[in-house]
Simulated scan of single mutants.
Amino acid sequence: MKLGFLVDLALCMGCKGCEVSCKVENEVPLSMWRLRVKYVDVGTFPETKRTFTPLRCNHCENAPCERICPVSALHYLENGIVNVDKERCIGCAGCVMACPYGAIYIDPETNTADKCTYCAHRVAGGMMPACVVACPVEANIFGDLDDPTSNISMYIMEHQGNVKVRKPEKNTHPKHFYTSGGEVNLNPLASKREEGYNLFNNITHLKHVGGH
């Protein structure tokens, strides 16, 4: 078994239900996140569009966080989940610096590393991760990548050529996939201010158009 995650960005509407359910289920401190939904606005007024991208641990097959941990607090479960053992963690933050996705944080209450674990405690009990259950449009798809009949495997087959991962050049081999997303969703450098853009002038233009 090799568990993986896929987000259909064409369905995600940015409601943040997944983000909130993750915080509640895992008692994540208010100032931290295991899962967050990134908003990216593209285009120029009046032709603009807002896109949404849920970001979480990628549970890489070649995970830098697992390799760098000196006490094996970051470790693989048999189902492929990269888990965190808080009893072993010494709070050195090596994993935080090693992760190319910014998915790990140091819990200010326990001073130990924490991140998305695909709700490993729920999965062990035969349940889906909290974010999957909370999504009203079923944009979050979770399952066994080794099972060709699983929902996620069939989804990947149906969307061949349109399945992407974040930062493939890092060779971490993520088990977290996205479909229906462009560069602006997965590449932070793809979203930039247009040449000649001036925030003050744009606000002034909007006020003029609105008659205020």
Rank of each mutant, 00 (worst) to 15 (best):
K115E: 07
L186S: 02
G80T: 11
P129M: 05
I152F: 09
F200L: 13
C89G: 02
K115G: 02
G210A: 12
V28T: 14
H208S: 13
K192G: 12
G4T: 06
N198Q: 04
Q160N: 11
L11K: 15
N83F: 02
T110N: 03
N187R: 14
N111L: 13
P188F: 07
M32H: 14
F177S: 10
I68G: 04
T204P: 00
H212L: 14
I156L: 11
S31P: 00
N201G: 05
G43M: 09
I203E: 14
E169Y: 09
D41A: 12
D146G: 10
R34L: 11
E66S: 09
E158N: 11
P108Y: 07
T51G: 10
G4D: 04
N185W: 09
L6N: 00
A98H: 08
C119E: 02
M97Y: 12
Y101P: 02
N198L: 07
R34I: 06
E66C: 04
G102K: 01
M127A: 12
V163H: 03
M1E: 08
V184P: 00
K23Y: 00
R50Y: 03
N26C: 05
T172K: 01
M32R: 15
G161V: 05
T204I: 12
E27L: 10
I81Y: 09
A98L: 02
V20M: 13
R122D: 05
L35F: 10
C60G: 00
E61Q: 12
C95L: 03
L11Y: 06
S153I: 01
E169H: 13
G4K: 03
I141Q: 09
T51N: 10
D147W: 07
Y197M: 10
V28Y: 07
D146K: 04
T204L: 15
L9T: 04
G182I: 07
H173E: 13
C119V: 08
L186P: 08
S180K: 12
C65F: 04
L74R: 14
C131G: 07
S191E: 09
N83C: 07
Q160V: 12
K23S: 09
D114H: 00
E195H: 07
E195P: 03
G196Q: 10
R67C: 00
G143D: 00
N83H: 15
D146H: 02
K16I: 06
V137E: 08
C99R: 04
M1K: 11
P136W: 05
I152T: 06
N83G: 09
P129Q: 06
G181L: 05
P46D: 08
M97H: 12
E78P: 03
R193M: 13
C135Q: 03
M128I: 06
H121Q: 12
G161K: 04
Y39E: 15
T149W: 04
A124S: 14
V24M: 12
M13N: 14
K49G: 02
P46Y: 06
C15V: 07
A120I: 11
